[in-house]
Simulated scan of single mutants.
Amino acid sequence: MLVQDVMVKEVVCVEMDARLPEVKTLLQNRGFHHLPVVEQGKLVGIISDRDILRLVSPFVGKVNEQTRDLDTLNRAAHQVMTRQPITVKANAEVSDVVNWMLKVSISCVPVIDDDEAVIGIVTWRDLISHAKF
């Protein structure tokens, strides 16, 4: 089975200068766990919901919120993203993706074309939903 058979094709991406409130809202409202970051149409990084949880102060929106807590929201995507994420082409074997995910403990792999544009995304949930037992 090929990656193109299991990948999600309608991928929402954010630009490098997108601010964390926008990223956080996209992740929450769309139910995503990963957002590719692009610059001039090319993949440059990826942000996960875990990245946001790790960086955004837990006091934002609470009674004891302070200025320094709000400052965490002023960061841009490029300051938070994982740079040079592992990627795959659409014609790669799904078994190769599974092996990479297990080997390097990742849960998402962006699918890119020859111009490094994001054309899909594969997560462990996608793989499980297509698994044949």
Results as ranks from 00 to 15, higher is better:
D71Q: 13
I106A: 02
I119L: 09
L27N: 01
S107G: 15
I47A: 04
D51F: 08
V3N: 13
I46N: 02
K9G: 12
F133T: 14
Q4Y: 11
Q66Y: 02
L35P: 08
K42M: 14
M101K: 01
L73V: 00
S95F: 03
V109S: 03
H34W: 09
I86K: 13
E22I: 07
F133V: 13
K89Y: 13
K132I: 13
V6Q: 04
Q28F: 05
Q4T: 08
Q66A: 08
R68P: 01
D96F: 07
I46D: 14
S107A: 14
V97F: 06
D69Y: 03
H33V: 05
E39S: 10
I128W: 10
V88Y: 04
D96I: 01
R83N: 06
M7Y: 03
G41W: 00
N29Q: 15
G31K: 00
I119K: 06
V3D: 08
D5I: 00
V60R: 02
V111S: 00
A131H: 12
A131P: 01
A117D: 11
L43N: 01
H78F: 13
S107W: 01
V12G: 06
D113E: 02
R50I: 12
V23K: 05
V94I: 12
M16D: 08
E39P: 00
L102N: 13
G41A: 07
R54L: 15
F133G: 13
D115R: 12
A18R: 04
L27W: 06
D96A: 09
D17I: 00
R30C: 01
I86G: 02
S95P: 00
S105L: 09
L127R: 10
S57Y: 05
R30Y: 13
D114Y: 07
G120I: 07
R68G: 04
V14I: 14
R19L: 15
S107C: 05
H34N: 13
A131Q: 14
I112S: 03
C108F: 03
S57A: 07
D49Q: 03
V109D: 01
V60L: 03
E10P: 00
D69F: 03
M101E: 04
V37I: 13
V80Q: 07
D114C: 02
R75L: 15
V94L: 09
G61I: 05
M16C: 11
F32E: 07
I128E: 14
P58Y: 01
D114M: 08
M101N: 02
G45V: 10
